[in-house]
């Protein structure tokens, strides 16, 4: 029972209080670039949830079942990046096959998930915090969900901003950064829940 409650706590914390985009500021490039419309944000969010969950689990197996027993923990960065690249490549082939529209909408940002620091960051945090496999599953899924929720919220705010009149000098990236900052403050406020 306590294992399961740990799982829930870690998942909740990863989504809200320790949101990887808005409290650690990881993966900001696609966060800004893909939040222009809710439709593409949804696609990108779903892709990140999938990649983060799968890579965290695979990297857990690689680290604890292969690297630690053989004493080759120094290979973790190399192995994590390779496994992330493979998962993203498979995801790219899959999206290209089933949804040409989403594939075209995501363009360069789909292969760029490979070098998205949020994905690698989640795997590294999972090792640092010595999570069990179950907790890693929750953490990977939660972090992905957290990033996706932040991205979707941002795209919603931006689609409202697009139709509003802004003071000169605040248009474009400026208002986006300010919005991200305010959203980050709101997410930090959730820390009290834990």
């Amino acid at each position: 029972m306590s294992d399961f409650s740990d799982f829930l706590k870690i998942t909740f914390a990863a989504v809200f209080t320790g949101n990887i985009a808005l409290t650690y500021f990881l993966g900001m490039c696609p966060f800004i670039a893909m939040s222009k419309s809710p439709a593409t944000a949804f696609g990108m969010g779903a892709a990140v949830v999938f990649v983060m969950t799968v890579t965290c689990c695979i990297n857990w197996i690689i680290y604890w079942q292969i690297l630690v027993p053989t004493g080759t923990e120094h290979l973790q960065l190399l192995c994590f990046i390779a496994s992330i690249a493979v998962i993203v490549q498979i995801l790219e082939l899959f999206i290209d096959r089933v949804s040409p529209v989403l594939y075209a909408a995501m363009g360069i940002f789909l292969p760029l998930i490979t070098v998205n620091c949020a994905i690698l960051g989640a795997s590294l945090f999972m090792v640092l915090r010595k999570y069990s496999f179950l907790n890693t599953l929750g953490y990977g899924f939660g972090s992905g969900m957290g990033w996706a929720i932040a991205l979707l919220a941002m795209s919603g705010v931006r689609s409202r901003i697009n139709t509003s009149k802004l003071p000169p000098g605040l248009e474009g990236p400026a208002i986006t950064m300010i919005t991200a900052g305010i959203m980050a403050m709101a997410f930090t406020g959730l820390a009290g829940v834990m």
Binding site: I66, T70, H74, L75, C79, S83
Partner: peptide
């Protein structure tokens, strides 16, 4: 290190 990298 070599064997583990090769295997993975």
């Amino acid at each position: 290190t070599f064997l583990v990298s090769l295997g993975i």
